[in-house]
Amino acid sequence: MEAAVSKGAFAALIGVSPGRVSQYLAEGKIAPASLQGSGRSAKIIVERAKADLRLTLDISQRLGNGIETRLDADDPEADAGTAAPQDAAPAREGRAPQPTGVEYEIKQQKLEQLRRANRNAAIADAEASGTLVETEASRAGMMRVATGMMLVFEGGLTDLANAVAAEFKVPQRDVLHLMRREFRKIRTAAAKQAAAEGAAMPETVETVLEADEISTVN
């Protein structure tokens, strides 16, 4: 007789929540023929239900739902409630058996694709919000800002010289000459200070990006 278990027990067998099993039933992913009884007391015929899910769930859904390799027909937990044979070899403590085969490789590749998509999405979000910027582009932008400010200040020296000359009744040419000489000293000192501060700064700043994590397939 085929083993039949409750919805909760079947959920534990395949590694999903009881609510997910109810969703499979409602969506027809587990066929009515895989049920024993009806209503709340209905039980799920294990191997039939697993066969249904192998047909109705694609790999990405199985990865996302955490079913992993528990839909295999030769799953040692398929016969719920039955004890293992006395002469069965005990499982190695602390280590779960590693699945192999083509299907497992496909699952691993699909999982890596999903992780890469999540990482790329996190990077795109960080770039859009300004959290992540290209170092060279940022440096070039700051240089343009600094150079523009210096040109504005230097270009305003003529107007300042005119104002000082008119106020103190001195030749405008002499005032402008003095201001330009002193401004060059200030500009040189500021450039040295900026260079020293820039040399002390790291090339990059570590940024932690939040990305949706996907469980590893065992």
Rank of each mutant, 00 (worst) to 15 (best):
A91P: 15
N120K: 15
F153Y: 05
S138F: 15
R54V: 10
K50F: 03
Q98S: 13
A189Y: 00
G130I: 11
A191D: 08
R62C: 06
D174R: 15
D159V: 12
A196Y: 02
L176W: 04
L13W: 03
A51G: 02
V145Y: 09
R181C: 07
I123Y: 12
V205A: 01
A121H: 04
A161V: 08
P32A: 02
G19N: 11
G156C: 09
Q98H: 03
A163F: 01
L151W: 03
E105Q: 15
H177M: 11
E105L: 13
G148N: 06
T100H: 12
R184N: 03
P85Q: 12
K7F: 05
E213M: 13
S41A: 13
V46W: 00
E197P: 00
S38T: 13
T131S: 04
Q23C: 04
R116W: 10
T158H: 04
K110R: 11
G156P: 00
L209D: 02
S60K: 14
T56Q: 06
T69D: 15
R40Y: 12
I14E: 00
K169R: 14
L157N: 10
A78E: 07
S6D: 08
S34G: 06
A140W: 00
L71E: 01
E197Y: 02
D125M: 09
A73K: 09
T204Y: 02
K185W: 05
A211D: 03
Q193E: 07
R187Y: 07
N118C: 11
M1A: 14
